[in-house]
Design a protein around this nucleic acid. Sequence first.
RNA 1: GUGCCCAUAGCUCAAUUGGAUAGAGCAACAGCCUUCUAAGCUGUAGGUUAGUGGUUCGAUUCCACUUGGGCAUACCA
Length: 542
Amino acid sequence: MKNYLIELFKKTETKLSYLKEVDIVFTVPSQKDHGDYSTNAAMILAKKLKQKPQEIAKEIINCLDFDKSVIEKVEIAGPGFINFYFTKSFNTLIVKEIFQHKENFGRSKKYSGKKAMVEFVSANPTGPLTVGHGRNAVVGDTIANMLEWIGYSVDREYYFNNAGRQMRVLGDSVRLRYLELLGQKIEFPDDYYQGEYIKEIAAKLKNENGEKYLNENAEGIFKQAAEKEIFGDIIKTLERIQIRMKNFYNEHVLYEEGKINSLLAEFKKKDLSYENEGAVWLKLSELGNENDKVIVKSTGEPTYRLPDIAYHITKYERGYDLMIDLFGSDHNATYPDVLAGLRALGYDADKVKVLIHQFVTIMEKGEVVKMSTRKANYITLDELIDEVGSDVVRYFFNMRSITSHLNFDLDLAKKQSDENPVFYLQYAHARISSILRMTVDEGLNPSLDNLNLLSTKEEQNLLKKLFEFPEDVLYSAENYETHRITIYLEELAALFHRFYTECRIIGSEKNLAEARIALCIAVQTVIKNGLSILGVSAPEKM
RNA sequence: GUGCCCAUAGCUCAAUUGGAUAGAGCAACAGCCUUCUAAGCUGUAGGUUAGUGGUUCGAUUCCACUUGGGCAUACCA
């Protein structure tokens, strides 16, 4: 539908050159009696042309050369909207299109040939993934899916470092627990990792090696063991929610390949850095940011900024057209430095899209659970998956705009998971499977020959909604908004359930019944495709 | 103090980027199963979009200020 309008306006540009001057946007009006699609072009042009919007609208309509079998009528309404009404028979064509493209219906080629990387999760291996990481993981993977649907070739990458202070403390936490198990009296500092998993790693070391490591230091075997165990668990957890990374990028590689030193030299050569009080500073204040920041500490150790910039340079070197960085809001102060650094070195920073998601608040027994990996009072992603399952976890995290805080009431999720909207969608899908099983028994088969019979309000609303799917996928993907897919699917499922209630198949006249079966299959295909973008399963039975 | 995000129905959230009468789900109330899955459908009720100004044909959306929350503001990552 929308494509038809876009083409139609393009053809009209030769008659009305001013149409080229504005971006013409078609939207589905919230009011049914405002047509199937609507544009405010005349109102926007009114300002430029200094004419009344109504007159411009009239002129546009007169010049539009549309096919009467496609568009039934065009109206001017309100302050100057142009409303389009499509014919019932045109609406049914979408069923044929869905039958033709099947599991690929909704995909587009707008960005084919382009390479994208989505960097997400990127949690250092200091402890199990929490519910907060879960939001990052699910949203990141879903954005990657959406980008694939609009043509990108997408790589998923996890960036981490296993050096630095955090990891030293981790290793020493394990060491102390190990000594404790060997009967030594220890003092466990408050700012060490308090979680049970530290004790488990220590216990494993003791069971397998006895007292062998009594005199080892924190940096060696203890840190290595901790990293190996924790990373193994992280990967397993991600797999439970269908997430598989293409690559795990270890910050350490940047040092091994000399990228840190060459970057440092580059900054110096371009006079973008200077030394002060034994540290190296980046001239960020000259690059439009608030303050200069340290990139190498007086101890000689780089701060995270330097490797972060070097890491992003590798992304450019690897030829990505689009680089998504997905962070929690606690990182909101770090990315401007990285982007400024890249820009100063001549990289096109617009290719990097930094997405910040707000935190997940966990409510349990009516209270907010404050989360801290170090203090170990958090709910792990694994526990959440145990409670509600992968589908609910994925759906729930995708359901909301990343700019808003996500309030997760754990008691509600456990107790009332049946009322989660994901079941509503899955139920619609399963219901269709059931219909298809029944109709086969009745000797009825889907047919595209009499789609014109689909003329009731319920059928027509459903058909129009199906048209929107590819547009919605494109829009959602271009704006990195996973929640729009869930909104679309809920609306589609609602229209289907209404159709199901009003329009019977078995018992209707054969041609109508077979057209309706085709419609059911079309709806089921779209639900399944939509759920697959979200990474949620589409069951045949419930 | 300063920067980023947020404040919408009792609760959790939308609103196609400045559009027409602000919408869903849950919770509440009233109905619908001898017929393709009632995990469903229909209806009722629920709002000064935190507040005050401003910008214009038109503001939940943009600007300023105020109030209240979250996250930052390291020679931690």
